[in-house]
Design a protein around this nucleic acid. Sequence first.
DNA 1: CCAATTTCTGCAAACGCTTGCACGCAGAAC
DNA 2: GTTCTGCGTGCAAGCGTTTGCAGAAATTGG
Lengths: 341, 341
Amino acid sequence: MRKRRSLAMNLDAVAQKAGVSTSTVSRVLNNLEIVKTSTRSRVLKAAEELNYHPNLHARSLARGKSRILGIIVSNMENPFFLDIYRTLESDAHGQGLEVVVANTDYRSEQLLASVQLMIGLRVAGLAVIVSEMEDHLIQTVADSRIPAAFYDVGTPQKNITNIRVDYRKGIKKTVGYLCALGHRRMAFVGHHSTLGPISERRKAFLESVHRCSPSAEAKIFAGPDGLDGGRQAARELLESDFRPTAILCVNDFMAVGVMRELHEEGLQIPKHISVTGFDNIKLAEFCSPPLTTNHIPRDQIGHTIFDHVLGDGREQRDTGREIVIDPELVVRDSTGIAAKN
Amino acid sequence: MRKRRSLAMNLDAVAQKAGVSTSTVSRVLNNLEIVKTSTRSRVLKAAEELNYHPNLHARSLARGKSRILGIIVSNMENPFFLDIYRTLESDAHGQGLEVVVANTDYRSEQLLASVQLMIGLRVAGLAVIVSEMEDHLIQTVADSRIPAAFYDVGTPQKNITNIRVDYRKGIKKTVGYLCALGHRRMAFVGHHSTLGPISERRKAFLESVHRCSPSAEAKIFAGPDGLDGGRQAARELLESDFRPTAILCVNDFMAVGVMRELHEEGLQIPKHISVTGFDNIKLAEFCSPPLTTNHIPRDQIGHTIFDHVLGDGREQRDTGREIVIDPELVVRDSTGIAAKN
DNA sequence: CCAATTTCTGCAAACGCTTGCACGCAGAAC
DNA sequence: GTTCTGCGTGCAAGCGTTTGCAGAAATTGG
């Protein structure tokens, strides 16, 4: 005896109990039609009685593939990512696929571990929803030959499908809207991973403000992603000598944190200062005041990713390299006419 | 040739390239010390060059167990559950375990599928964070012999470890606090799965209100869990003829929804009406007004579960059956003196 | 230089499942 | 009563690892 097995819950046990061979049991459990009805029910009964659950590892190994969709997310706490995750999950379940998620918390070591995990699991498809990823890791995924799609990965890469949001367009629109309301001093609040050296968003913001009026002022602040991060960035802003009449936030989650801090400092929104966000998460309707924001269709993103990885769009996987999604401005009560100086 | 393999990325390939046997490669990859340094580096180099990633299914199969913590959650959207999940995840990673999550969305068919998945994966341990679970499913988990812990599963069961919060105590305290502020008409807002026939919370609420004053009035409302559900319950309340001066919500997430609806109907909090929640999620500090709530230590819950499943507390797994956690009232700005009629 | 250790490596079985192939056996056709 | 179908089942190989055991190689002591 090489090893003590805790419970002998395997095909063999069921086969013996039902008086058939393992092949037959396997066929019954996989709904192959070739099995006689009487044998079939006998097997089913035996499996039931033995409380048998097929070993998914063995199954994947034998089949040479798994029925698992892998999802890597940078920040599950942010409802934006959570929504994408949930869409993916529901699509996957719709196709009878299981889902394995890994959370990276924006930590690159966790990202690496997550990628290894997914490859090790030989997932049938992989969705990567992290804001930033080193090129060599992207390459690792590509080399693994696992059908994959990325959301908004920093630099566009040769061989991969990348879904991204045109933040530039959204920022332009938002700044334009604020400009029309008379705002001439605006701040941008980002989180750390939106601030890489090549940050398109930062540039778009500065350009847009300048286009509003050459004399308009712009400044950029940042904190970690999340409610606290937003609050922290707002505090920095308040402690600086910059007094904007409007603040653009890189996402709604941070915007809520920003609004809280402003509120506690006695600033009224939008009377004293306007605030906008991105994403249009559920919370944007529920905070006070409801947030003016840029709607980004998470469900569309999720469906698109799924389609390119495991769905019907699979065939064009190798052709469609980059899919761009446009945000749409949703005006609520957190923005108004610029306060006079 | 029986089957076309996409990529021959297995131990054999590495072994051949390094000119050793698969056993040696295995030993290197598992950091067994018996390997000579020179061979070791040769193997490592080969693995690197071939872009090799061990097949986790094969590994689990051979080892007869996996290094995976399974987590089943009813509603990832609710920050309360999310926090527990994150604590578990971080504990697991701390021990080099991977994590697989399944979301049930309060749907029992999903719960069943999730349980099957976890058993099929032969997870090393299982945490079940769903508010309600049928007895036979609990039994299935118990029969699987997988170390498991449940959070607040409806009926206490013979053979399992159950961590639960003493909502009764929290509700008593909250009602007492409101009573002292002069409230005599209170509503309770729950979600559907807190309303089973044996609902301890509902009873605790009614009793507590009665204890406050025999003539005090109490009524119960409900919606689905979540922001929208809270709003929906609040709308029902507003459309009824019941005019409470305070509303206790079963969790903060719903409370935020409730507050939003009240606000839009022109009711001021806490001037016209007081609102309380449970959980003390991050958002409770960030909403307007900040929410008076009952703190429930998610991290403690998470750590406790992990400990009982896979951590050091493992030894007592079969002894400690029920662990009770007390909530603690946190007073913020959403509660005040009862409005006079 | 040989024997006795000790260190390192390879062989092969096992993990639990899937699946191509072949075979048994019933009924149909002749 | 043969031969021919073809359905239903079993055999056994293979999926990619781990690991006990035994044997090879290196080291040591005498």
